[in-house]
């Protein structure tokens, strides 16, 4: 089980996966919007999305949990 975390502070712009979906290493799973830039957040390992902790529009701080992958 691995938690994918925000790499920097910003707003959740897009959540690209759904609970139960399979993801691959390097795949973009969330895009944050910060400093007027799109910040892609990628999966660090293959697995199945167990839980999504955030909604689009939420503010997240660096290291906040975004998604849990099993």
């Amino acid at each position: 089980m691995a938690k994918i975390q925000a790499s920097m502070a910003g707003n959740v712009w897009k959540v690209l996966v759904k609970e139960g979906e399979e993801v691959k290493t390097g795949q973009d799973v969330v895009i944050l919007e910060s400093m007027k830039m799109e910040i892609p957040i990628t999966a660090q390992a293959d697995g199945k999305v167990q839980k999504i902790y955030v909604n689009e529009g939420d503010f997240v701080n660096e290291a906040d949990d975004l998604i849990e992958v099993e």
């Binding site: 790499s7 920097m8 910060s34 400093m35 830039m37 799109e38 910040i39 892609p40």
Partner: peptide, 10 residues
């Protein structure tokens, strides 16, 4: 590197 943290300087 715009691919990581938007290329913002930290």
């Amino acid at each position: 590197q715009p691919r990581v943290k938007g290329g913002v300087l930290f």
